[in-house]
């Protein structure tokens, strides 16, 4: 085999692996991407019930209701609109009414069925999506690290 043929074999193999990788990426990007939506967008848009969604906002004060067997319902708000969320499992340690939260799951018949709930990891940190969501509603106060009035929301 000449040097040139060897190089062709190598390029061929690289091409096959790359093509497979691109194929996998395209497949995954078309079917397995989670869209981020604000509560207002969820209320206003029609959402495919099989589409995975992340919704971010604040936990509505007074909306957390504990049900049977570790089930819990609460509402996520961006102060303009609210979306009811159901979840079964253990809420994060820093899950609080009036604090930022991101829920991941699907929207069915106007109810958000979450399988994952993320809250702040640190009291000074606010999920970026929540900040974006609140900025859209004009309730974000710039210059306050950790979001709107972190001190006021402490338990």
């Amino acid at each position: 085999m000449t040097r040139k043929q060897r190089r062709l074999v190598l390029i061929g193999v690289v091409g096959v692996v790359l093509a497979a990788a691109v194929g996998l990426v395209l497949f995954a990007m078309s079917s397995q991407i989670t869209l981020f939506r604000t509560p207002t967008e969820l209320v206003q848009q029609t959402i495919d019930p099989s589409q995975r969604i992340r919704v971010g906002g604040l936990v509505e004060v007074g909306s957390v209701v504990k049900g049977q067997d570790a089930a819990v319902t609460f509402e996520v708000t961006d102060t303009a609109n609210r979306v009811p969320v159901t979840y079964k499992g253990i809420l994060p340690d820093l899950f609080r009414e009036g604090q930022g939260v991101v829920a991941e799951g699907v929207l069915q018949n106007g109810v958000f069925m979450a399988d994952t709930v993320l809250a702040k990891h640190d009291e000074r940190y606010m999920p970026k999506e929540v900040v974006e969501s609140l900025k859209k509603q004009g309730v974000w106060r710039e210059g306050e690290p950790g979001g709107p009035a972190p001190g006021a929301a402490k338990p």
């Binding site: 996998l24 989670t34 992340r54």
Partner: peptide, 18 residues
């Protein structure tokens, strides 16, 4: 101008076979 999050399903689908 979009907002997406790429989580475990993407990475498992793509990284797993490779």
């Amino acid at each position: 101008g979009g907002a997406i999050s790429v989580g475990a399903p993407y990475f498992n689908t793509v990284f797993g076979p490779l």
